[in-house]
Write a protein that binds this DNA or RNA. Structure first.
Lengths: 230, 230
DNA sequence: CAATGTGAAGACCTTCACAGCC
DNA sequence: GGCTGTGAAGGTCTTCACATTG
C-alpha cells in the first residue's frame, strides 16, 4: 500500500476523506451567508469538530489557507469538490424499490450533489414497469445492460438481505466498482471493489448500548461523557 | 472520562461495540442453520472480518469461548444481547414523516430487534392526523408529552436539515439522551446526550472519492487496494 | 491438537503546542 | 496579532504470533 499516485492528488487518510463532505456542506452554507473567508475555528463550530482537526484535515488536501486570515471559502469549496471527484456527475443504479429504495430514489440531496439516479431495478414483477419520477423500474436481469448504457459508476443496494449478494454480483459483473449497501447483510466482492455499508438497525443497536450505559452510570454517580464514534 | 462503571459490564471499546450487532446477526444466522458452536474463523467468514479481530472483540465482552472448540452460539448471542442492552425493548420516536421517515417507520428490522416505533411527529399540517401502520402522526409540539407517555428512549430525526436542530432540542427537552440523526445537518446537544449521524449523500460522496481514485490508478498501473473505513 | 485469549508491535488517528507567515 | 500548518506526543484500533487450555 504505497505512496505514489500523482495526478494532483496526494494520498488522503480515510478519516479525513470521511469528513470532507461535512466541510463541504458547512462551507457552502457559510458562503451562502456572505462569508468570503472562513477560519478553522468557524468551520469547527459549524461541523462540531475541533479547529485542530479541521486544520489537519485541510492541510491533508493541500494548503489553501492564509495565515492570519483563514481559508478562502470559494477556493476551498472548489478544491474539496475536486478531491472528492464531484466536478463530474455520477450515474447511480438503485437495486430494490421497497420503502427504502423509493425514499432514496426521491431523495433530493443526491441530485443536488451531482448524483443522478440513472436506473432502478427490482425482482418483483408487480413493480417492474412502474415509474418513479419518470424513471421506469426494470427487472434485475437488465442491470448489466442498463449500467453499461447509462455508464453507471455506483450501485446502491436497497433490497432485503436475501437478495443482496446476488445483486452485488450483478453489479460487479456490470463493471461497477463502488457499492453502497443498505441491506442488512455482508456482501463479498472482488478486491478492487469498494463497498460501504449503512445499516439502520445496527445504528439503533449501537445507540442502545450507549443509552443503557448512560442509564447505568446515572444510577451510581455523575452522568458519563457521551459521543459515539461512527 | 474515568474507568469504573461496574454493573456487570466492563468498558468496551467503541470500535468493538460498533461490530457487535454484526456478530449478533451472523450468530443468529449460523445458529439457525444448526451450528451449536462457532469458531472465530467461521464468524470472520460470515462478517467479512479477520479471525484475530473477532477474538479480540469477543474477549472484550468477556471470555465465553472454549479453547479447541469455539464459542457456544446460544450463550454468545445471549451475552451480546445483554451487553448491547437488547434484553429490554426500546421505544423510539421518529420526527419527520417524509420519504425517509416513512421508510423507517415501515422498516421491519426495527421491530425484529426490539425497537418499537412509539410515536411519529411532523410539522406539516397535511400529514398530522394521518396514520402509518395504525400509528397517528402528531404535531411536533406534542413530542415532549408523547415521549414521556411512551417512555421513549431514542429519537430519530428524519426531517429536512432546517428542522433538525429544533427537533433535537425538543427531544433533549423531553429527556431523550440518544439520537439518530438522518438530517444533513449538524445538531448540537448537551453533553451527556449521544448523537449518531447517518448521512446518505455523504456516503455517496465518500464513495465517489474512492471511485475516482480507482479510476485514476487504473490509468497508470495496477488497480489499488479497496475498502473504505466507515 | 485445535482454537481461544492476549501481550506486544505496528498502523492509524487525534490532540497538543508552537513555529512560521501574512 | 491572528491564524495556519505541522512536528511530536498521546490514544485508539488492528494485526501478529504464541502461550495456554480443554
Amino acid at each position: 500500500m504505497g505512496s505514489g499516485s500523482r495526478s494532483g492528488g496526494r494520498d488522503i487518510p480515510d478519516s479525513t476523506v470521511a469528513r470532507l463532505p461535512l466541510y463541504l456542506r458547512a462551507l457552502v452554507d457559510l458562503a451562502a451567508t456572505g462569508d468570503r473567508t472562513v477560519s478553522s475555528e468557524a468551520l469547527a463550530e459549524a461541523t462540531g469538530l475541533t479547529s485542530a482537526k479541521v486544520r489537519k484535515d485541510l492541510s491533508n488536501v493541500g494548503s489553501y489557507g492564509t495565515r492570519g486570515i483563514g481559508y478562502d471559502a470559494a477556493s476551498l469549496i472548489h478544491e474539496i469538490r475536486r478531491v472528492l471527484g464531484l466536478t463530474q456527475h455520477w450515474a447511480i443504479v438503485i437495486a430494490g424499490v421497497g420503502n427504502l429504495g423509493r425514499a432514496l430514489a426521491h431523495y433530493k440531496g443526491f441530485a443536488e450533489r451531482g448524483f443522478r439516479v440513472a436506473a432502478l431495478v427490482d425482482v418483483d414483477p408487480d413493480k417492474i414497469g412502474r415509474k418513479l419520477d419518470g424513471l421506469e423500474i426494470r427487472p434485475v436481469e437488465e442491470l448489466e445492460a442498463l449500467a453499461a448504457r447509462e455508464e453507471v459508476a455506483i450501485g446502491v443496494i436497497a433490497t432485503p438481505a436475501s437478495e443482496a449478494q446476488d445483486v452485488a454480483d450483478r453489479m460487479v459483473a456490470a463493471g461497477i466498482r463502488s457499492i453502497l449497501n443498505f441491506a442488512p447483510a455482508v456482501v463479498t466482492v472482488d478486491e478492487g471493489v469498494t463497498v460501504r455499508k449503512v445499516d439502520l438497525a445496527t445504528e439503533l443497536q449501537i445507540l442502545a448500548y450507549y443509552e443503557q450505559r448512560n442509564a447505568e452510570s446515572f444510577e451510581e454517580g455523575s452522568p458519563r461523557d457521551a459521543s459515539a464514534g461512527s
